[in-house]
Amino acid sequence: MNKWAIGIITIVLIIAGAVYAIYEANDYDYDDSTKKYKIVKKWELPAELNEVSGIYWINDNRIACVQDEDGILFVYDLKSSKIIKQYKFAGPGDYEALSFLNGEFWVVESNGKLYKVPNLMGAEKDAEEFSLNFEYRNNIEGLAANSDGNLLLSVKERNLDNRGDYKGIYAFDPRTKKLNMDPVIKINYNDPAFNVLQTENPRKLIRPSDLAFHPVSKELYVLDAEFQKVLILEASGKIRELHLLDPEEFPQPEGICFSPSGRMFISNESLGGPPTLIELKFIK
Rank of each mutant, 00 (worst) to 15 (best):
I206F: 09
L245N: 05
N201T: 12
P215I: 01
A235M: 01
H214W: 02
N201Y: 13
D246L: 03
A212H: 02
P208E: 04
H214N: 14
I206E: 11
D246G: 06
K204T: 03
S217V: 01
A235S: 13
L233W: 10
E234F: 00
E219F: 00
E226N: 15
P247N: 05
P215M: 01
L205P: 06
E241K: 14
E234P: 03
H243A: 03
L231C: 12
K204S: 08
L244W: 01
P208G: 04
S209E: 04
V222L: 09
A212E: 08
R207L: 12
V216S: 04
K204V: 00
K238C: 01
A225M: 07
S217L: 03
P202G: 07
L223W: 05
P215G: 01
P247W: 05
H214C: 03
V222E: 06
I239V: 15
L205F: 08
P208L: 07
E226K: 14
Q228H: 14
S217D: 03
Y221T: 06
L223Y: 05
R240Q: 14
L220K: 04
V216E: 03
S236P: 00
Y221W: 14
L211W: 11
S236G: 02
L223M: 07
L242R: 02
R207S: 13
A235Q: 12
L220M: 07
A212F: 05
D224S: 14
P215Q: 00
N201R: 15
P202T: 11
V230I: 15
L231S: 12
A225Y: 08
K204L: 13
A235H: 03
E219S: 12
K218W: 02
Q228S: 11
P208F: 08
F227G: 00
L233N: 07
S236N: 11
K218I: 02
H243L: 09
V222M: 10
N201M: 10
P202W: 02
E234L: 10
V222Y: 09
P208S: 04
F227W: 12
D210F: 09
V230E: 08
D210P: 11
R203V: 09
P208N: 05
I232A: 09
E234M: 05
K229G: 07
E226H: 13
L233E: 07
L245G: 09
V230T: 13
L211M: 10
K218C: 01
P247G: 06
R207E: 14
S217M: 02
E226A: 13
E219G: 02
D246V: 02
L220S: 03
L231H: 08
L205H: 04
H243R: 13
S236K: 05
D246E: 08
I232M: 13
R203A: 12
R207I: 05
K229R: 11
K238A: 15
H243P: 00
I232Y: 06
E234A: 13
Q228E: 15
I232T: 14
I239Y: 09
D224C: 14
S236Y: 03
L244V: 03
L245S: 09
L231A: 11
F213S: 02
D224M: 11
F227Y: 14
K238Y: 01
L242V: 07
H214A: 05
P202C: 07
E241R: 14
S209N: 10
K204D: 14
L244S: 08
L233H: 11
E219C: 02
